[in-house]
Amino acid sequence: MIDMALYFAMGCFGVGLLFNLYRIAVGPQAADRILALDTMVINVIALIVLYGIQGGTATYYEASMLVAMVGFVSTVAYCRFLLRGDIIE
């Protein structure tokens, strides 16, 4: 039963990644693209954790933690670059 739910959740997050990709390609504003990239990072974290549950191993926490931190820093850096024209003043 858990296997079926895992496949369902993975499918949902995979389709979500496709939606994000559409928004990155189309999105009229730069803010839309940053938002889509941030959502993509969150979806990827969810996929990594789901893969860890499926494999039954606890090795993937570090990977998902790293992806979360890098995603946050890159989003803030991108926004700051657009706001101020510089990342670290």
């Binding site: 739910a5 499918g11 997050f13 979500g16 939606f19």
Partner: peptide
């Protein structure tokens, strides 16, 4: 897990 899938899909669908 099912709740997670539905919420994740809703968030990304709202983006579109």
């Amino acid at each position: 897990l099912v709740l997670a899938g539905i919420f994740g899909l809703a968030g990304s669908f709202g983006l579109v």
